[in-house]
Write a protein that binds this DNA or RNA. Structure first.
Lengths: 238, 238
DNA sequence: CGACACTTTGATTTAGCTCAAACATAGTGG
DNA sequence: CCACTATGTTTGAGCTAAATCAAAGTGTCG
């Protein structure tokens, strides 16, 4: 078993999928009672502290994960050592789809950005259930497509245009499909790595947004967004 | 049938998949003779001229495609009208995977960059064959994962670092896994849209590479690459 | 040949990078 | 409890790569 020290520490028990509060929105949503009875492998839960690795690209890809709460970044590195965050995943998202392919590898390092709860299950399990369960197959395909459009959006929205535009788009993305316009910001360094700009530029721009009232601190490191004006900026650049 | 005028003009006959020269490397590689007998829908071939649309994101996604030769760009647009090329596809690549999802849409416009031959088949066909054919299912999953790692690489390699680095990486990418180091360049405008830089910067950099002998014109618009030195640039930026 | 589209080159401006220092915040240990 | 370190953020000043605006080449095709 290739369980990193970090993960061992983060273990918080076995999951109870049947009674999971995320049951309807999660990868296994389509599974019947009888399917769950076939699950003999343990499904473990972990609580990750910010900065903790869920997996590294060098790990053997035997597990897949769903996020229960919090957020993780998926990171790739260039030969020169610089890093680029290619996606962030949040509640109900699946990580490690690539573990389904035989002979595959994890494509990224997955690192918690906030206190994060995840469930871990063996990729083998999904392969087996998928064989007889077209519902699950469809769900997997849909997840893959979702990851792909996220990747495309990351490129068109977050790697195109001025730094101001990119930051505005990132902020808007953080509160999309949420009830409130409140959100937690990432470190300036992470923002830079997401947007392909430097830490300083990220900091300057965020500081500027605060001064302009586009961003109001509601509690420590939680901010309310002026969505209409950020939208304007994300398009016009002004 | 939602066949655009362009495509109607480009029709070049029905495909003979069983005797296809790309048979071993193509999506249907795992299909048995008996599977092919179940194919009653027509599989059409098209020859696209440079600039021709294979499909638009506004089209009803009823078909999938494989590229026999040539190259296409997948394009997305920002609200302000600027375009970004998120991927290029070449021989043996599949387009329109997203047509497999019910209620989905094409995520891009697909436009030929060179004279390009494609085969077109109904997504319905793949859905049906996939139901009973685990081999095809695996192949589809693998294709999706391939598209996803391409998308990630596009972000880390082609949208990070200086213009010189990006261009060098793009050039190297064009000849990867090819016998020769010879390749066709895209228009400067397309290069810009791929790398998130302006047409002028793309032109200047390419012109510079030519002067430095990193790029030698072997025939009209075909170039030999100085791979080792381009590699150096792609990492060190010098 | 002339028209059109694309590429190259030039001159100027500017957004964002770099390097550096000051400031804030939280955690550590005497 | 406070001094002290560590870590991240903000701000500043100067520099540079790339954007912008504009014009001159180059090739292709009717």
């Amino acid at each position: 078993m290739v369980k990193s020290v970090t993960l061992r520490e983060a273990w918080s028990g076995e999951a109870d999928c049947l009674n999971c509060s995320l049951r309807t929105s999660v990868l296994f949503a389509g599974l019947a009672q009888s399917d769950f009875e076939r699950i003999h492998d343990p499904i473990d839960q972990f609580n990750l502290k910010p900065g903790a690795f869920l997996y590294r690209s060098s790990d053997l890809p035997e597990h897949m994960f769903t996020v229960r709460s919090g957020a993780l970044k998926l990171v790739q590195y260039l030969p020169d050592g610089s890093q680029r965050i290619v996606r962030i995943v949040r509640a109900t998202d699946v990580l490690g789809l690539e573990a389904l392919l035989e002979g595959g590898v994890y494509q990224h390092d997955a690192i918690a950005l906030q206190p994060t709860e995840v469930c871990r299950f063996p990729a083998r399990l999904v392969r087996e259930l998928g064989r007889t369960n077209p519902e699950l197959q469809r769900e997997l395909i849909a997840r893959w497509q979702l990851a792909l459009s996220e990747a495309d959006a990351w490129l068109t929205e977050l790697s195109t245009g001025s730094a101001r535009q990119r930051i505005a788009r990132l902020l808007l993305r953080l509160v999309r499909n949420r009830e409130t316009s409140e959100c937690q910001l990432f470190s300036r360094e992470d923002m830079g790595a997401m947007l392909g700009i430097t830490t300083e530029t990220a900091s300057r721009t965020i500081a500027d947004f605060k001064r302009q009232g586009l961003l109001t601190e509601s509690s420590s490191n939680r901010f309310l967004l002026d969505i209409p004006n950020l939208k304007r900026i994300s398009e016009n650049s002004l």
